[in-house]
Amino acid sequence: MTCFALLLAALFLFPIQSQGLLQYLGGPVWSVARIPLEVIASIDGGIANRWQQYVVLQGVWEENQQLRKEIEGLRGQNTQLRELATATERLTALLELKERERPTMVAARVMGRDTTNRYQVIILNKGESDGVKPNMGVITPTGVIGRIVKTTGASSVVLLVTDPNNAIAGLIQRTRDEGIVEGAQQGRLQLKYLPLLSTLRVGDRVVTSGLVGDFPRGLGIGTITYIDKQEGALFQSAELIPEVDIGRVEEVLVILASHGQSGQVAGGVDLPGKP
C-alpha cells in the first residue's frame, strides 16, 4: 500500500521525471516483450494473408474486371497529368522557385494496435535507434496515417489520423481552402474552420497543406462525404472518409526529415525535427 501511494505521489509531484524514468526503463522491457509480440504478430499476419489469398475470393473476378477498366481510365489521366507536371516544372524553374526536396523516410512494419480502446494507435517496429522521434509524420504511398507520439529504442507508437486527439493542417485540393483535419468517431475525419465562402463539394479531395507540422504538401488525407454549413456559424465544416484504409495498414513510411519549404512558410521559424 505504501509503495502504491509513494509511486502515485511521485507520478503526480514529478510527472516528467518519474514518467521519463519509467519510459527509460521501459526500453529493455520493450526489447523482451517484443519477442513474443513479433512471433504472434507474424503468425497472425500469416494466417490473415492465407485467409485473404485463398478463402475470401468471392467477387474477386468482378472486382478485377472493374479495376482493369479503372486502370485504363487512369492511364489516360496519368498521361495528361504528366504533361501538366512537365509544364509546371518548366514554369517553376522559370520563376526560380526552389525545387521541393524529397523527404527522408524510413519504412516500418505495423506490429500491433493500441492495448486500450480509447486511442486509435498502431505500434511500429522502428524506434529511436532508427532515427524516429515524437511528432514525426507517418504515411503510406496512398496518404497520411498519423504522427508518432511515443518512442522507445526499437519501437514507436503512432496516433492515427482518425483519433479525435489528432489534428493536421489540410487543404481542399480543388478550391485551395485550408482547414484543420481532426479525427472523428467511427473511423471518419472532420475538416474544421473552413471559410463560409468556400465552394467545397462532396467528393472533393483533401490533402496536407504543408504549412504546419511534419507532413509535406500534397499528401492525401481524405475525400469529403458531407458538408456541414450552419446558419450563423463563423465557419463551415466537412466530414471526410480517410484516404487510407487504416484498419488494413501493414507497412508505413515515417518521415524523418521533411522538406524545408514548410518550415519557411510557417513564419520562417525552424520547426522542431526539421533539418
Binding site: L8, T115, I123, S155, D163
Partner: peptide, 10 residues
C-alpha cells in the same frame, strides 16, 4: 501495456 499505448502512464 502503457509502453504500447498512447494513454497516460499514471
Amino acid at each position: 501495456l502503457s509502453l504500447f499505448s498512447a494513454g497516460e502512464l499514471w
